[in-house]
Amino acid sequence: MAEPKLRIRDVTVAFRTRRGGEVVAIDRLSLDVADCQIVSIVGPSGCGKSTLLRLVAGLVPPSSGEIWLDGHQVTDPGADRGMVFQSYTLFPWLTVQGNVEFGPRLRGVPESERRAVAGRYIQMVGLTGFEHAYPKELSGGMMQRVAIARALANDPEVLLMDEPFGALDAQTRAFMGELLLDIWQKSPKTILFVTHDIDEALFLGDRVYVMTARPGRFRAEVSLSLPRPRTLEVTTSEEFVGAKRRVLAMIREETAKIMGAGAAAGS
């Protein structure tokens, strides 16, 4: 196998609590992601999956371990790792176009070029005609589409997505999944996709990692050989349903650990 695009090596993240204790959010976790692969990460809430993305983004320093992207060690945030958050993070004072242009503008890309780049990505997420709208005029799904366009306009090496469709209703969510795959098909990117929605994880990912309850580790990897381009039909295929059943069982066990209910029944 060629050198992976992204290497996460034995990374641990520990937070110090106010009372002087220590909480290990992520425990000696390793992950390799090949170029233009989509890796989904699922796990019970509070398992550290968001922390994992923030680590790669450089927003949280690892307590130990290393993260390498394209042979460079990650030490702080940078434009090569774009991120889409679950909460709406568009800048309300900028129009759709202003938001999408934000990254290129920071880098000093000349206006005409910026405009062209923004236009291309706005079209890609299907929002042509809304260039001059302010975020307050958009629906939740539209805002997340702009957020994706804004991240892509920087042409990052890795796209980090932290439950980007988590706040959307089920129909919009399914549509956004298809849209994301459609964009990926047109201009492939390495994507790390965190979600608690198993369908979404399996539908999008080449590989799905299931995380344990805190301290977060990978419990299992589920590789899917679903053909691409995928449509929502694959979600009813035998392979998909089987994988879903396995992942569901694992997450249920992990959640039970947190709730304490599984303590007696399980181990």
Partner: peptide, 10 residues
């Protein structure tokens, strides 16, 4: 997160 996203945009 608005500040975080700005850092990830460079």
């Amino acid at each position: 997160e608005q500040l975080d996203v700005s850092y990830t945009l460079g």
